[in-house]
Structures are given as C-alpha cells and as structure tokens.
Design a binder for these strands. Sequence first.
RNA 1: GGGGACGUAGUUCAGUUUGGUUAGAACGCCGGCCUGUCACGCCGGAGGUCGCGAGUUCGAGUCUCGUCGUCCCCGCCA
Length: 588
Amino acid sequence: MKRTHNCSELTAKDIGKEVVLMGWVQRRRDHGGVIFVDLRDREGITQVVFNPKFNKETHEKAHVIRNEFVLAARGTVEPRPDGMVNPKMKTGEIDVMASELWIFNMSRTPPFVIEDNTQVSESLSLQYRYLDMRRPGLQTNLMLRHKAAAAIRSYLNNLGFIDIETPFLTRSTPEGARDYLVPSRVNPGQFYALPQSPQIFKQLLMLAGFEKYYQIVRCFRDEDLRADRQPEFTQLDMEMSFVTEEDVMAVTEEMLVAVFREVLGVELEHPFKRLTYDEATGRFGLDKPDLRFALELTDVSDIVGTSEFNAFADVVKAGGLVKALNAKGCIGFSRKEIDDLTALVAIYKAKGLAWIKVRPDAWQSPIAKFFSDSEKESLRQRLDMEPDDLVFFVADQPKVVNEALGQLRSHLAEKLKLIKEDTYDFVWVTQFPLVEYDEEGKRYIAMHHPFTAPLEEDLSRLSQDPLTVRSRAYDLVLNGIEIGGGSIRNHQRTVQERVFEALNIDRDTYEKKFGFLLEALDFGAPPHGGIALGFDRLVMLMAKQTSIRDVIAFPKTQKAACLLTEAPCEASATQLEDLSLRVRPTKK
RNA sequence: GGGGACGUAGUUCAGUUUGGUUAGAACGCCGGCCUGUCACGCCGGAGGUCGCGAGUUCGAGUCUCGUCGUCCCCGCCA
C-alpha cells in the first residue's frame, strides 16, 4: 500500500481514479448507514466516504474510527451527488469512496480540539505542543518559517555568501546579557558559555578572508522573557569585508525585498526609509518608531520654558524637555480615558500627563491658565491646535519625555485605529550613540557592542565627551519592532583600544578578555561590518502573529521552562559529581 | 527584583461584587437511533479535590493570607 495523493489535491479532474490517502481523522460523521470521515494531512482535508452498499466490510471496520486516528484509505474518486458540493473546501467537488481501510494507530481523545478557532490556554497547548502543531495555523507558520529561511539562504548563496558554523561552546563575554553557562567536565571548575551571538567569530571569519559570511544560528541569552524574547532564539547573522554601512544596508534591504516577494508575494516599498537616531527619538520618541502612522512629537520647551507654569519651566531650567503630542479630534476623551493614559506614561517614569482640550471658544485644561496669550498663540501655531484637538504634554529629562510620549503615541495609534494593517513599514535608524551612561554601574557602556566603530568625524571627542560620539551602527525596524541591528566594526587595533578605554575598560582587562581579538586585528584585518536580524521576529511579523512563540516549534514559557519535556530539571548526583559541582540549597 | 490579569467538568467559560439547598452552559466524550453529512441531526448518559495550603465563619468556588502555574508589562535584554 502506497500513498498516491495528499489530502488537498484531488478535484473533479481526478474522478474515477483509484487513490490511497493517509492522514489523521479531523472529524467523523456517522449517519448510521454511511460514514463520512474528514481526513487531514499537512496539505489539507479530503472527505472519505464509507458506504455499506459500496463495501460492507470496510464500512463495518470504519465504525471504530474516532478523531485523530491515523489511517490509510484506498478508494475511488467520485463526484459529490447533485447539490452536495462543498464550495468551502478545496477538495469539495469530490469524495473518496473507500474500498479498503487500514488503521495505523488509534488515538486517545485529544485534550483540545485540533482546530484553529478553538481557544486553548497556552500552558495546555505547550504541554501538548505536538497536538497544538497539528492545527493549521501553526502548520502554516512553521512552513512559512521554513520558506523564509530557504529564500534567505538561496538569495545569499547567489551573492557569494558562505554559510559557516561557529561554536556553541564558547568563552563567556563579560559585557551584555547574562550567559548560559555550561560546566566543563574535563576542566573541573571551568565553564563554557553559550553564545549570545557569534559576533566575535564572524569578525574573525572576516580576518580569515571569507569576505561574505552568513549563518542562520541559534543564540542564547539568560534574561527575562517577553512576547518577543525567548532565551534561545534564531538570528540571521551576516558579516562582510570591504564594506560601508550603505553596502550592508543595501544587501539586507534587497534580500528582504526578495524574501517577501518569494514567500508572501508582497512587493516591499524600497529603498527603506531612513532616520538618524536623533531624528527617530526626537520626532517619534523611540529608537524603533512605528511609521505606519504620522502623529509626531513636538518640542515646546522654548515656548513654555519661560512660562508661569512652574512644572514646565523648572524642568526646562534643569536641562529637561517639554514635548507635546496633538491627538487630533480626541476632545471627546473622558476623564477616565485620560487617567488611563496618565497611568500608561507613568510606567515609563513620566510624573504626569498634562493636557489641553481645544474648544472652539477656549481651551479646557488644568494648565491653560498659566500661559500668556502670546504663549498660547505660539503653542497653537507650533502644535497646529484646532477645535476638537486634545494635546498631551510631558515634561522631564529627555529620555523620559521621549520614551513616555513615544509609547503614548503608539498606544493612541492603536486606540484610534490609525495603524494601516497589512503594511510592512521598514525604517533604518542610523548613527546610534556609541555609548550610553549606565546609572547602575556608574560608567559608560557600549550602546550596541564594544566592537562598533565610531563615526570618523566624531572620533576626536571619544575620550573627552563620549556621549556625543555617534557610531556606525544601524538598526532595522519593521512596524515599530526592532528586527535587526548591526554596525561597521573597528578593524584597526588603535581605534578598538580607544573605544575600550572610552568604556573605562583598562588595558589589562581588555587584553585579558579580548586579547585574542586585538592580536588578530594586528594581522591584516580588513574593514568589515555586518548585521544580525531576529529571524523569529521577522517570521512573526510575516505571519501576522504577535508572539514569537507562534513561529517557534517548541517555545519556552515566561519562566524559561519547556512544559512538554519539563526542562529545566535537577541534575543527578552522578552528573554533578562528574562536573565537580555542588548545588547550594535554594534559599527561601 | 517590581506592577497587573487569569486559574471552576476533557476544553472554553458563567457563577465570586452581596458567603447559604444538589456548582451551571456550550463544545468535546460515551451509549442508542439515523444512507449525503461537511459545526450532521435526534434521544439518553457519564464527567468537578472550584490550582494547592492555611485562616476567618455555624457555613467558603465566593472573604483574608501564603504558595504554585500561565500570560502581559517595567527593570533587564552589549
């Protein structure tokens, strides 16, 4: 017995053929006489009919069939009787009239119905992920993931990129996310780390002369999870020699255009938009702006900084900012709605949310009385305030103002349904600051990573005024979600050392931690740069999902557990002994 | 580390505000009937440690505290 067709391909043109189908029972309808079975495989569903008039013995056998049984049916493709065609099904013109039935396996009643439209708690679906993945939605997502990976590989292969694997058992890197550590049995007391990214290795591959490298590779970060963050995730990692930012961005962009065309049949608008980091945070508040809608932030510090309203004036005097967001036509927002928005900005550390409702005759606002007529006129002009508008203000340090209003902006867009669905809006954000100040550690840390090259024209300020130094780093943002980032790297030892020093890493330390890289740079390092794209996030957006768990076959829960295999779990005494490890009792 | 939501038949939920008789519905499941259904139909039935543990009370699904789990968010994620 050999399968002849899948469950989606038989149509009227196949009438009369003898076929063998194999698959799972989606649903059984037993009419006492005739029994209908919807047989499902990964391609689709075909109705198999067991009719006692046609084959009594097979019909008898079919009585035991239940949902999710796995079976094979041999039969003849027949047209449906008049008026019985099911236009909703691809195979709705035909039946397979069964002459023989093999039951490969029975099935327990599944804990949930295998259908897209049934809601199941995520813990249950993860515990039975193999059943969850029988549902068409996840099947489609994972097939789309495969197609995207295949399209990427084929595109990059054609451009001469070389796929090279890098190690998973690597040296722990001190900066950045927490590492997953792996104890070394043969080196008691010593540990490998799982890579957060193959960053250093891909740079070494450039030094080795491969010129164009890529890898679709698993990365590991021991940090808390989110809807778009898993402890192990997949990135498309690329690196190129003899390139500038423009080259890396062009290759990435053209690749994505090709992938979206091939996988989704979508023609992306390109070249992608560009914003510098300062423009992005200035106009949209965030370094990952969603440009599917307008709604920009406006700086009004100069107007209100000298006003009678101390809450604004004091902030401006202290070097802060006052920015505004004009919610056009939102004058109808209730007190509660405004309170909710105030609570929203409070999450991002804003101490308050001031507002003005523009009525045709006057402004309704707790703060309007503090402004002079000329200040009001300036605000009106700057913010294009028209009757029915509702304008929000946040005053604080720039980071807080931008973050809070940026989040408010996205929230309002969703609330007001300003977002054009079904669009893919890409934007490059360039010239990120090289470093930022870490309040907790009281020092400068690399915003991207310490191998990022500073902009040549800012290099002279590196030691005196590192915060003003822009870098040759770029992020790729899709619909407000960061899907990738990269940079041109330091290929000259002297520049790399200056960056380390700007980060307050002393010579002894960086020699010890990155000496191998610095030494490598001494041996003819070519200029190089690259990018890493979050493959899970990219596929998530292509599949129109909101969590990367929906495009990962076996994702972990928020506590980084696999509910199916019950990982992580305790190690046996023997394992610990082999590894020279002792586990401290967990503290209560 | 912090904030929030949720946890009740196999599943998805109602019931919790205001404690009170035997904890309900739909789907699923089991049995019977049914030869054209495709969310098949009709009849009947089984199925519950109300996440877990304390406490308050004459009495707790309902109130309190703790705990476990899942999700969303802040911190964190070079």
